[in-house]
């Protein structure tokens, strides 16, 4: 019992330490960019959060398929938890992108293909939560949500390919030729991926644990209610 209660603390400390190192690298160690100056530091949060959002939605997609194949509720829990974190990271991506765009592009928002498809992604998964919240019955909710999660994931490769399919002004930090930046900036960015991945792992573990506890609590409550009904019947 103690070990079950202890792991979130250790995981939180580890993720916090990694994030602290990332903050140091992003704000102190890495140099300012030649043209953008210190604005480049937004990239160390914008790009890793975008990549982690895609990863989170990929986990949602895979767990949705697994749920439909095996019908085990744990896949639904992981799927929903990962989608929540994905929406959080997508929100961070959109906000940090907007903060960067204002001084660089002279606008908070532009209808660039990558920006637009990312915003669509946010709306798709916001719809996913509306759908989940409005369906009664654990299994029915899991089944319908899984189908929608599979369909919604189609937007992720579209975001990735959007800069090639349509004219885009969105800069490419990483492409098939590698990192388009000096080594110190690339190293900070890579560390950012690791740090955000740790954060994702922590959030996912905590959220799934919380959801499982909620499920166990619900089952206990149902068992108590059934026992009370039986008892009253006997009296």
């Amino acid at each position: 019992m103690q070990s079950r209660a202890g792991w979130p603390v250790w995981l939180s400390i580890a993720a916090g330490a990694v994030m602290f190192v990332h903050l140091y690298l992003a704000f102190v160690w890495s140099p300012p960019e030649q043209h953008m100056g210190n604005l480049v530091r937004i990239m160390y949060f914008h790009v890793p959060s975008a990549w982690n959002a895609f990863f989170a939605f990929f986990v949602t997609f895979v767990c949705a398929i697994l749920y439909l194949r095996r019908r085990r509720l744990v896949y639904d829990l992981v799927s929903a938890a990962s989608a929540e974190i994905g929406v959080l990271f997508t929100s961070i991506t959109l906000v940090t992108g907007s903060l960067w765009a204002r001084p660089i592009w002279n606008t908070w928002w532009t209808w660039d293909p990558r920006l637009t498809t990312t915003l669509i992604l946010w709306f798709l998964y916001a719809g996913y939560f509306l759908l989940r919240a409005s369906i009664d019955g654990r299994e029915r909710r899991a089944r319908v949500s899984a189908v929608f999660a599979i369909v919604a994931f189609a937007d992720v490769p579209v975001i990735h390919m959007s800069v090639e399919w349509w004219r885009s002004i969105h800069p490419l930090a990483v492409d098939e030729t590698g990192f388009n930046m000096p080594g110190s900036m690339a190293a900070t960015l890579m560390f950012g991926f690791v740090a955000f991945m740790c954060l994702y792992g922590l959030f996912l573990a905590l959220r799934v644990r919380q959801q499982r506890q909620a499920m166990e609590l619900h089952e206990l409550r149902e068992a108590v209610r059934a026992a009370r009904v039986r008892q009253e019947g006997q009296v």
Binding site: L124, V144, V151, D155
Partner: peptide
């Protein structure tokens, strides 16, 4: 199956 089906159709349809 949703309790909000009337509002959910446009909400899910437009992003898709």
């Amino acid at each position: 199956a949703s309790a909000m089906r009337d509002i959910l159709v446009p909400v899910l349809l437009f992003p898709l």
